[in-house]
């Protein structure tokens, strides 16, 4: 689907490998994501899902293969890494908001430091994205004064303030209380509908069905299966995928 994105991939991983000591966390990962495409990554814990997307913005260093973000290869060069990080937004499982800064300052820090926006421009942009995640009235509070769901929406807004071309989500709802999850997912669905390129590691299969263009199933550091969601859920190809789906969908 999505032929409109052109031939250039927003994200391309070629034969990516990563080891922690002797433990092979990622092996020969090939993945292409077109502009505007939404990819949901799932798999059992320890299968390398997080490690894979953390390699994309160099929170982890890949040791084999190549990673291209919007046509630029990710190399050891510090400037290059910082440039790519500006293009790639990331949302973490534990939010990683800055507790000593107000919500507004959490959002404006990146744009002021890296996009050379003035304080006013950055403030304006911050309010715009806070409204988008429906939390504008909390701008002057500190992160600890918000609920988990609100904090995660602030974290999404913080990433959006850099106006990234690609958004990575690392289990964004896993640390939330059940009643907080839907608010965060709603924001993510809207983001998807607005055409953001997204790679989400999540166990929210309802969300996956709703927005994913492709499902990626990983196990033991490898990509086992890639399929559109309807086929992925109704007729998975491999035994491992079947087993995994039966485990998470049984209740």
């Amino acid at each position: 689907m999505s032929e409109s994105g052109g031939d250039r991939y927003m994200l391309e991983m070629q034969g990516v490998g990563k080891w922690f000591g002797n433990f092979c966390a990622l092996y020969d990962i090939d993945l292409q994501v077109r502009s505007g495409e939404k990819v949901v990554v799932c798999g059992p814990s320890g299968s390398g899902k997080s490690t894979m997307i953390r390699c994309v913005n160099r929170l982890e260093e890949h040791q084999a293969g190549h990673i291209f973000v919007d046509g630029t290869e990710l190399t050891d060069d510090t400037k290059n890494i910082e440039l790519i990080r500006r293009e790639v937004g990331m949302v973490f499982q534990h939010f990683n908001l800055f507790p000593h800064l107000s919500v507004r300052r959490n959002l404006t820090l990146g744009p002021i430091r890296n996009l050379n926006l003035s304080k006013n421009e950055a403030d304006e942009r911050a309010m715009q994205y806070l409204e988008r995640v429906r939390i504008a009235e909390q701008a002057d509070k500190f992160p600890s004064q918000l609920s988990g769901g609100q904090q995660q929406r602030v974290a999404i807004a913080r990433a959006l303030c850099m106006q990234p071309k690609l958004m990575l989500f690392d289990e964004p709802t896993s640390a939330l209380d059940p009643e907080m999850i839907s608010g965060v997912l709603e924001v993510m669905v809207e983001l998807a509908q607005d055409g953001m390129t997204m790679v989400c590691v999540t166990h929210e299969m309802g969300f996956a069905r709703q927005v994913a263009d492709r499902m990626v199933f990983m196990d033991s550091g490898e990509i086992v299966e890639v399929a559109p969601p309807d086929r992925f859920f109704s007729d998975p190809e491999t035994e491992r995928t079947k087993l995994f789906l039966s485990q998470i969908l049984s209740h």
């Binding site: 913005n57 929170l59 510090t78 910082e82 440039l83 990080r85 500006r86 790639v88 937004g89 990331m90 973490f92 534990h94 939010f95 990683n96 908001l97 800055f98 820090l109 990146g110 430091r113 890296n114 974290a155 913080r158 990433a159 303030c161 850099m162």
Partner: peptide, 20 residues
């Protein structure tokens, strides 16, 4: 996580140290 959150929005090592 503070390092990661700050580096993910593209802050340099120096800025991460100073601001976060």
């Amino acid at each position: 996580g503070q390092w990661e959150g700050a580096r993910a929005i593209g802050l340099s090592r120096f800025n991460v140290m100073r601001d976060v």
